[in-house]
Design a protein around this nucleic acid. Structure first.
Lengths: 338, 338
DNA sequence: TTGTATGCGTTATCAT
DNA sequence: ATGATAACGCATACAA
C-alpha cells in the first residue's frame, strides 16, 4: 500500500522526482535514482494502475467480449483456442486482458460502449457477434479501437480477422464432387452468422461450377449444435434418400449427422460421406475419423491481438487479416457407394 | 467522455448531488434525480471505473492467474472449463475478470503481489501453481484474498477448491483390483503437483488395502503430457511385462499409454487395462473408450469464484470446498487376460 | 435536500 | 537536477 508519497517522505525528495526517477526519466541524477529505487524496494512499492490510468488515459488493458464462455459450450474449445492466442500475444507485450463477464440479463443493462468505457480499456476484441447483434452497430458507432473475429467489417476504429470461409467450403465440396458425389446436402449453422453465409456461398459456388443445380431443400440449419444437426439430418436423409454426401459447417454438427446416419443404418462413408468444419481435437477420434476443414483458431486469436495492439500504436496500422484454412482428408468421405 | 462534472454544469446541480443521484442515494429529491438521470442519458455518461476504484478502494474485478493458457495446452480444455465456471459465476454478480497475461519471462519481472496490486483486483483465483512455485509463498504472505485451485491451503486470506483426488484414485485402483489385477502400475504427473501426491496416495492406499506390496519401479512420471507418458509407458511395459494394468493421472497420459501399448502389440483392455483421470470430452472417443475419473472442472471454477466473492463479502465466509469425483467405467478396463 | 471542500495516487506543466 | 502545483473523475465528511 506504499505510494510515491511514502517514498517521497522517506527519501526527502519530492513526489515529482520520485515519479520521474521510477519511470526512468533522464533528468534525475543516478545517485538520487538509486536512493529512490532502494526506498521503493524496501517499502515494496507497486504503482497504482488506477491512478496512473486516470491521468494517462491509457490502461494497458484489452477488453474481451466473448460469447460462448458458458456451460453449454464447454466441449467446444474453439473459443479457448482463440483465447490462448490472444493471451499469448498479450503476454508478449505490456497488456493484460479483461474478460467482460456478461450474461444475457446483464447485457440488457449495460451496452458494449458502457462496458468498455467504465473499464477504460484501450481496445476490444469481439468474438461470436451475430450480424443482427445490436452490439455490432454500437461497435461501428463507437470510437473504441476494436477487432472483430469472423465479422469482416473495417472502418476507422474497427478491424477484423477471419479465415477464407467461402474458399474453404468450396474446397470441401469440391472434394466431394471429385469423389463423384452429386446429391450433396449442407447442414449450416444459422443465418445470422457471417461464417454461415460465407460457407454457404462456397458450397453453392462449388455446385454451380460442377454444373449441379442447387436444391434449397438440401440445405438446413443445425444451429452449430450436435443435437439439432442430428435431428435435421435425420429428416433430411429420410426425405431425400438420394443424398450421398453432407457438408457440415462445424465438426460437432458433423458428429450429429454421423449419429443420425448411424441410427438410420446408413454407413459412413460407404453410403454417406460427411465433411466437417473446424478440425476440433476430437475430430481425429470420431468413428470414422472426420474429413474436415482445419481452422487455426489459436492463430486467429494471436493475429487479432496483434492487429489490435498495432492499431493502438499507429493510425495506419493494417486493420484486417484473413487466414487460410486447409482441407484435412480422413475417413468420413469416400466415393459414393450403393 | 462525459463526466459528472459535465452533468453538474448541464443541470446546475453540484457534482455531489449528481453523484448521489446517480448512485441511488435516498437523500435527493425524485425530481432532481430525474433531471440528472436525463442529463446523464443525453450526454451518454458512463462512470469512470478508474476514478471510482481509486477512491472506493474496490474495483469489482477478480484477477485470474492461470497457467496453461498457451499454445501447447490447446487440446486440454481442462483450463477452459474452469474458466467457464468462473466466468459464469462472475457474470451473475457485478465482477469482471482480469486475465494476467504473463509468460515465464514476464513472471520474473513482476511478482504475484505486484501484478495484483497494480491492477487493484479485489481478489484472485490461482490455477496451476506448483507446490514449489515461488508465487505460492507470496500468496500466503500477501493480504489479497485468494482462492487456489487444487492446492489445499487455507489461511486468513486464502481459500481453495479441490476434488477428492486421493479417494478418487483409490476408487480407480480398487476397480482394477476388483477386476483381478495385481501388477498395477501408475503413470503420475510430476512430483511438484499436489494432485500428483494425492493421487499417488490413493493408489498406494488401494494397493495396501488389497495386500499388494508396492513396487516403486511401477510408478513413473509422465509430466501430464501424452508424449512423455507414452515414452515412460513403453519402457515400463518392456521392463515389466507382468504389468496388466496402468492407472494414469490424466486422460492425455492414458492416451499416451494406450499408444505405447499399441506399438508394443499389447491389446487394450484384454492384455492391459488403462484408467485415466479427468474425463476430457475426447475420452469417450478413444479406442477403446476410456475408463476414467470424471472431474467437473466447470463446477470447480464456479465454486472457486463463489468462494472468493463470499470471502470478499464477509470475513467468516467458508474458505474451502472439496468436490466429489466419479468413476466412469468404459471399455479400457477388463479382467486380466493372457 | 443540496453544496463545499478534501482526498484517492499518479503524471504533467512549469518554475527554479 | 529538483520541486510546487494542478489536473484526472469520483465519493464522502461535513456544512448549510
Amino acid at each position: 500500500m506504499a505510494t510515491i508519497k511514502d517514498i517521497s517522505q522517506m527519501t526527502g525528495f519530492s513526489i515529482t522526482t520520485v515519479s520521474r526517477a521510477l519511470n526512468g526519466y533522464s533528468d534525475v541524477s543516478e545517485s538520487t535514482r538509486k536512493l529512490i529505487k532502494e526506498a521503493a524496494e524496501s517499502l515494496s512499492y507497486s504503482p497504482n494502475g488506477l491512478a496512473r490510468g486516470l491521468v494517462m488515459k491509457e490502461t494497458k488493458t484489452l477488453g474481451l467480449l466473448v460469447s460462448g464462455m458458458t456451460y453449454k459450450n464447454i466441449d467446444n474449445n474453439f473459443v479457448f483456442e482463440v483465447l490462448c492466442g490472444i493471451n499469448d500475444s498479450a503476454a508478449n507485450s505490456a497488456y493484460d486482458l479483461i474478460l467482460f463477464s456478461t450474461n444475457t440479463a446483464k447485457q440488457k443493462m449495460k451496452t458494449y460502449t458502457q462496458l468498455c468505457r467504465e473499464r477504460k480499456v484501450d481496445g476490444v476484441i469481439l468474438q461470436g457477434v451475430k450480424t443482427d447483434d445490436p452490439y455490432l452497430q454500437e461497435v461501428l458507432d463507437s470510437d473504441i479501437p476494436c477487432v472483430l473475429i469472423d465479422v469482416p467489417i473495417d472502418s476507422k476504429y474497427v478491424g477484423f480477422v477471419s479465415t477464407n470461409h467461402k474458399q474453404s467450403a468450396q474446397t470441401a465440396v469440391d472434394h466431394l464432387i471429385d469423389l463423384g458425389h452429386h446429391n450433396i446436402a449442407m447442414v449450416n449453422g444459422y443465418p445470422e452468422a457471417f461464417v454461415s453465409k460465407e460457407r454457404y456461398e462456397g458450397y453453392a459456388e462449388a455446385m454451380r461450377n460442377a454444373g449441379i443445380s442447387l436444391r434449397s431443400e438440401y440445405v438446413v440449419n443445425g444451429n452449430f449444435t450436435e443435437e439439432e444437426a442430428q435431428q435435421q439430418a435425420t429428416e433430411l436423409l429420410k426425405a431425400y434418400p438420394e443424398i450421398t454426401a453432407i457438408f457440415c459447417a462445424s465438426d460437432m454438427m458433423a458428429l450429429g449427422v454421423m449419429k443420425a446416419a448411424g441410427e438410420l443404418g446408413i454407413a459412413v462413408p460407404h453410403q454417406l460421406s460427411v465433411v466437417g468444419f473446424d478440425d476440433i481435437p476430437t475430430a481425429t477420434y470420431f468413428q470414422p475419423p472426420l474429413t474436415t476443414i482445419r481452422q487455426n483458431m489459436y492463430q486467429l486469436g494471436h493475429e487479432a491481438a496483434n492487429l489490435l495492439m498495432g492499431m493502438l500504436k499507429s493510425e495506419d496500422s493494417p486493420k484486417y487479416k484473413i487466414l487460410e484454412n486447409e482441407l484435412v482428408i480422413r475417413s468420413s468421405t469416400a466415393e459414393p457407394g450403393r
